[in-house]
Computed example of a mutant assay.
Amino acid sequence: MPHKTFVLLLALSLMSCGPSPGRQPPPAATAEPHRAAPLRLAAAARPRFDDHDPHDWTGAGPRAFPVHGIDVSRWQGAIDWPRVRKAGVSFVYVKATEGMEDSDPMFGQHWTGAGRAGVTRGAYHHFYFCAPAERQARWFIANVPKSADGLPHMLDMEWNPFSPTCRVRPDAATVRAEATTFLDIVERHYGRRPVIYTTVDFARDTGITRLPGTGFWLRSVAGPPATTYPGTPWTFWQYTGTGRIDGVAGPVDINVFRGSETDWRVWDGHGLP
């Protein structure tokens, strides 16, 4: 998922686009029965974050929101999760899969580490436009265990113009139909509908944010969502791809949850109060 503004990280990430042939699912983690549970807040009263390439936000910007979190993949390497939680990270989304055969080699380590440190966690799938949505959903399910205290999972939908294996751009109706298929299958399995992460150009080209009954996670690193996606409701806002957080060695995406601390504790993935 994350867009890396640092040239080296971006180059490495783009090289990873598209499924790797012959990849098999990792050993399945022990599935836990699903039940609604209050979401946890970070240990810090307020997040203590910095940025490798800070944006000069007008007004409070993302700091106006009390609940912050990160999304991570193999590119963050090993993470000191107790330090991350102490810094004020209330949630994490961990990359699990891409396409229908590629799985992130750090998923298990990140997933387990975040859970042990008390960071509320969800997993995400990077959609690949050269494979049917149903097969991608089944691949995601094969790699991500059910969790008693997890977040609704996330579907990452964005264009991949530099993918070495798949650069097709389906029409908007096909994109929305494939997204719906993926969301329906994953919702039936885990009990909650995933949120959709997207970018400005993808939202403009496909109308993905018009899908009903779905929460949205919007990337906007140079302005608030109200400016970049006028009229679009959102649940999460990714406001930087170059964040600096104690416990993570390099740049990391940082996000905010739209609601209050009370909203966060009761949010179930089906919208905000």
Rank of each mutant, 00 (worst) to 15 (best):
7 V>D: 14
7 V>R: 15
8 L>H: 12
12 L>C: 10
16 S>W: 01
17 C>V: 13
17 C>K: 05
20 S>M: 07
22 G>Q: 04
22 G>L: 14
23 R>K: 13
25 P>R: 09
28 A>M: 11
37 A>P: 01
45 A>E: 15
46 R>N: 08
48 R>N: 00
52 H>R: 15
54 P>R: 11
55 H>E: 11
56 D>C: 06
56 D>E: 14
56 D>Q: 12
58 T>I: 09
58 T>D: 13
61 G>I: 03
67 V>D: 11
68 H>S: 09
69 G>C: 10
69 G>H: 09
74 R>V: 14
77 G>T: 09
77 G>E: 06
78 A>N: 11
80 D>R: 07
80 D>S: 08
83 R>P: 01
89 V>Y: 01
89 V>L: 05
94 V>M: 06
94 V>E: 08
96 A>L: 12
100 M>C: 13
101 E>P: 01
102 D>I: 03
103 S>W: 12
106 M>V: 01
109 Q>P: 03
111 W>S: 00
113 G>P: 01
115 G>H: 05
116 R>Q: 15
117 A>G: 03
117 A>M: 06
120 T>D: 00
120 T>C: 04
121 R>G: 06
124 Y>K: 04
126 H>D: 09
127 F>E: 01
130 C>Q: 10
131 A>H: 12
134 E>T: 13
138 R>A: 14
139 W>L: 03
139 W>Y: 11
139 W>C: 06
139 W>H: 14
144 V>M: 10
144 V>Q: 01
145 P>H: 08
146 K>E: 10
147 S>R: 13
150 G>W: 04
153 H>Q: 09
155 L>Q: 03
157 M>E: 07
158 E>Y: 02
162 F>N: 13
165 T>C: 05
167 R>Q: 14
167 R>T: 15
168 V>K: 11
168 V>G: 05
170 P>I: 03
171 D>T: 00
174 T>H: 06
177 A>Q: 11
179 A>I: 07
185 I>L: 15
188 R>W: 07
189 H>L: 09
190 Y>Q: 03
191 G>I: 07
193 R>V: 09
194 P>Y: 11
195 V>T: 10
195 V>W: 14
197 Y>H: 08
200 V>H: 14
200 V>C: 06
201 D>S: 15
201 D>E: 15
204 R>E: 07
209 T>H: 06
209 T>P: 04
210 R>N: 11
212 P>G: 03
231 G>R: 03
237 W>T: 04
238 Q>T: 09
239 Y>K: 05
241 G>E: 08
245 I>P: 07
246 D>G: 10
247 G>N: 06
247 G>V: 02
248 V>K: 07
256 V>S: 04
258 R>G: 04
259 G>E: 11
260 S>W: 05
262 T>W: 02
263 D>T: 04
265 R>T: 14
266 V>N: 02
267 W>E: 07
270 H>I: 00
